[in-house]
Design a protein around this nucleic acid. Structure first.
Lengths: 362, 362
DNA sequence: TTGTATGCGTTATCAC
DNA sequence: GTGATAACGCATACAA
């Protein structure tokens, strides 16, 4: 039925309403559609127990007056908001925004919005602060990033709040011992590091430096383990003298690189547990007049934007971080909640790695 | 008064309540404090018309049972949420997260949370989409980033919504012609670029390449203008042949650098309108066997993390981006709403710039 | 200074 | 299948 087909004398109540230019509420829809609020509510929430005819009629009104349910009122009644929370204490801005972009990819147009909430894991009321955030905002889901995704206190607090949450981690299962039983989005850090080790071994390197991540980080453990496995597979082992602990920062990578390169004989290759530190190694190498990859091969982890920008391009292990963010959000938004998702990591070979024979001048 | 001091026979109603382990509401506070909901509400909202005695008594109960007003219910009644929106369509992840971190610095502990909402300025319903977001979430404030902070359609849409909003821009006032009259957080892009030009001129450079930002970007115009001013002050001018337009991306910087360096005589210095492109110039220079700064001086803009990480360190103009994010949030949160804030930019000299005399071998 | 009744916009209960 | 009424948790208008 077209509105203009109505008798000219009686003005269309819908047109009448539109002239008022007021934000439409469920009441307006109800009265214009000549049904009760509850019926409108049923239509909004796709309740099956509405006659098709009624439903279409209500939907027509909704479309005409441009009604959108108020998330706050809806949330109040539902006892939950339509917000996802991103909780992290991670100094790597690039990592955080990659995840964030993935999450945003997923929720775009879904009616759910993303609230970002960094925190300070060294604060005494770190847990309470997050608990308040989640509880107060009545989040419909929470995404937790490493390293606090490995914090058992936090996890059990989230369990208590019984809010759906997803952890992003580097090791499947490991920290999921009871009572923690959350969904995980996992990257196979070991896999890519194994490939990195094999790549270096195949280039003839045997004197290889290793810059690890900070103690207590699952990613640091996994990368170390993967690298070990790769070397072992090639009949090599990591010389304890050539292992330096870094902090995932540029500065720590620089210092570690300096320390490694001052040894005699010096390593012909260095694996750095992230790109940030790898670029620190670049600086250390430049200071010593060493050229990459001729005098020294370098491999990083993350395949951060900087890896493709430095000269020479940095060979690095890529994890599909944005995809992981997307998967995390999807696990929280999707109807049928998924189990954990696991992502492979792959070695991206650029120009920072070359044959050991060139570098071997003791 | 200590609770335990009460008569042992009559159990403390507060203790009684705490045993129930239910989330406290304003009703609980009211009944335990033996006042009406309204009085509790007054205390929460710091109404002056509450007797100090009553206030303290209510606050005591609030503290004991750990009551926190529900933002959703509060928002519903207030007709606004306690959320700030960050709206942007900016490919520079580092920039976005810097702003974001500044905003988060400011709102931490304020009870306000940040909702990030990227958008697509090329989409046909770009404006509508943002309007819906702001209206539906009843945001208490919006922060708009460049380049869409210069989009008049968007600005007037925000004006219509009469939501407090702050724009982050590179040029004070310019695009604030009526009816737009929003608060601005401004960086003096020209200032730093003027300094960059002077720096290069003082090093003896006169054949200087200039890589601009994309057409239509206020920042691109301002940086160009500042650089011009700086050269003019030193009796130099920009050779049109040595001006190439970039897109603020690494790739576009690489191509622009390649084009500039293929000229004969080639420039002895290149100013790039952001760091991303400047690093592209590094790559182009390396390919041509040119060493920085001996054969070529390079200056960037942003002082992004990468500027300090590449070798040699990139001389770059620094804008206090995080501070600007903080200022933007502050303008929206603070009691007495501020006017626009303007931030200076400064030249950070590193190792990528040197005397022209060395580079001058035509 | 304090309380009562009512509204904010939606959903849940339980009738019909 | 549909509707009247009471939540949801808090704020405002108006009295007292």
């Amino acid at each position: 039925m077209t509105p203009t087909a109505l008798s000219e004398g009686a003005p269309d109540p819908v047109e009448d309403f539109l002239k008022r230019r007021k934000k439409a509420t469920i009441n307006d829809v109800a009265s214009l559609a000549r049904v009760s609020k509850k019926t409108v509510s049923r239509v909004i929430n796709h309740s099956p127990s509405v006659r098709a005819e009624t439903r279409d009629q209500v939907n027509a009104i909704i479309a005409r007056i441009g009604f959108k349910p108020d998330p706050q009122a809806r949330g109040l009644a539902f006892r939950r908001s339509f917000l996802l929370g991103l909780v992290y204490d991670n100094p790597n801005a690039q990592y955080v925004i990659n995840i964030q972009n993935g999450v945003l990819d997923c929720i775009r147009g879904s009616g759910t919005e993303l609230v970002v909430h960094p925190c300070d894991k060294t604060s005494p009321d770190f847990i309470d602060e997050i608990r308040d955030f989640v509880e107060l905002q009545r989040l419909s889901g929470v995404i937790v990033l490493p390293p606090i995704a490995e914090n058992r206190q936090l996890l059990s607090a989230l369990d208590d709040l019984d809010v759906p949450y997803v952890r992003i981690t580097a090791m499947p299962g490991e920290e999921n011992t009871p009572p923690i039983a959350s969904t995980q989005v996992v990257s196979r850090d070991r896999m890519g590091c194994r490939a990195a080790a094999e790549h270096l071994a195949d280039l003839g390197h045997s004197r290889i430096g290793f810059i690890s991540g900070p103690a207590g980080y699952a990613s640091a453990r996994q990368r170390r383990q993967g690298f070990d496995e790769g070397l072992t597979g090639r009949g090599l082992t990591l010389d304890p003298v050539l292992i330096v602990q870094g902090e995932y920062t540029f500065e720590s990578g620089y210092l570690a690189g300096k320390a490694l390169l001052s040894q005699s004989p010096r390593p012909t290759a260095i694996f750095s547990s992230n790109d940030e530190m790898a670029v620190g190694v670049y600086k250390a190498a430049a200071e010593q007049g060493l050229s990459i990859p001729d005098d020294l091969s370098v491999v990083g982890y993350d395949d951060a934007p900087i890896a493709a920008r430095v000269t020479p391009g940095l060979t690095s292990v890529r994890a599909p971080i944005r995809d992981m963010g997307r998967a995390a959000a999807d696990a929280l938004i999707a109807e049928n909640r998924k189990d954990s998702t696991i992502f492979d990591t792959t070695l991206i070979v650029r120009q920072s790695t070359g044959p050991a024979v060139l570098a071997f001048k003791p």
